[in-house]
Design a protein around this nucleic acid. Structure first.
Lengths: 144, 144
DNA sequence: CCTTGACTTAGAGTCAACTCTAGGATTTAC
DNA sequence: GTAAATCCTAGAGTTGACTCTAAGTCAAGG
């Protein structure tokens, strides 16, 4: 209920985070090594085990979305660096996000075009099979 | 104008095909080795140079669409095998295409969701910058 | 005829993004 | 108290899809 975003923050083990994000524990260690997290070093508990917070989980969920839309890890690292630097570079963050947004729009257009072509081909084969036309159609792959 | 699809068929060098498909000559040789073409072996001219036809170009353009929509080369190879086998396996080809069609639809849904999230984040940063609010907002990355 | 550019093969190298292994240390459940 | 599960580090291995290299052969323009 507190308006300030600094609540108790139950700490999470790497296994918990893996479960909540769908990333493997291997991938999570790799992400830390690669500087993709919000802190350069995930704090460790007494026994040396990583202690993540729910902020980390939120960040990783965002990373998953960025990855799923084709952003390379190198670009995510750059974004993480900007966030780690703290306030002052918001314009640069915006630029990075907008560049990616444009890419995603391109991808969407391309994917829709692919879908159109595949759907047409599916239609041709459906037709062909429905006709029961065992006619050796010259080469169905070249149609249209 | 001939209704039968077997016209003169000017032959094309690997360089011509590369230019027309956007694939590199290296990739084209690789595709042949991997059994992704309509014939197991692209015929060679007297000097041992590959001679492609416009059918090959059409096929490769389709392959590009399938690849661009995330079909792995192994799956394209399977499709190529079915086409090489000739008539009789149309149902199997249709199944393969429909499976891919479904995947593309999933991808489209996922990509749209990513786009929505990125757009929201872009909106937050735009707002923040427009407000000229140099207020050290706690952590903009965690917003919403 | 000769040079330049395109082509040939076989095989090695690259890149991103993990994924796995070895050899231990720590934590948790009974 | 102990066994099983989970965690640690450092580093090697994997996968897919090319991409490049070496050491030539072939073809086209002047």
């Amino acid at each position: 209920m507190s308006a300030l975003g600094t609540e108790p923050e139950a700490e999470l083990s790497i296994g918990d985070v893996a479960e909540q994000t769908g990333l493997s524990v291997h991938a999570l260690r790799y992400y830390e090594r690669e500087g993709l997290m919000l802190t350069r070093h995930i704090p460790r508990g007494t026994g040396g085990h990583r202690r993540y917070t729910s902020m980390d989980v939120k960040w990783l969920v965002l990373c998953n979305k960025l990855r799923a839309s084709g952003m390379p890890l190198a670009r995510i690292r750059r974004y993480a660096e900007l966030v780690r630097e703290g306030p002052g570079n918001e314009q640069e963050r915006l630029d990075l996000l907008q560049e990616h947004q444009a890419r995603v729009e391109q991808q969407l257009a391309e994917l829709k075009e692919c879908h159109r072509i595949i759907t047409r081909k599916v239609g041709i084969y459906r037709q062909h099979l429905a006709d029961d036309s065992t006619q050796d159609l010259w080469n169905i792959t070249a149609q249209r």
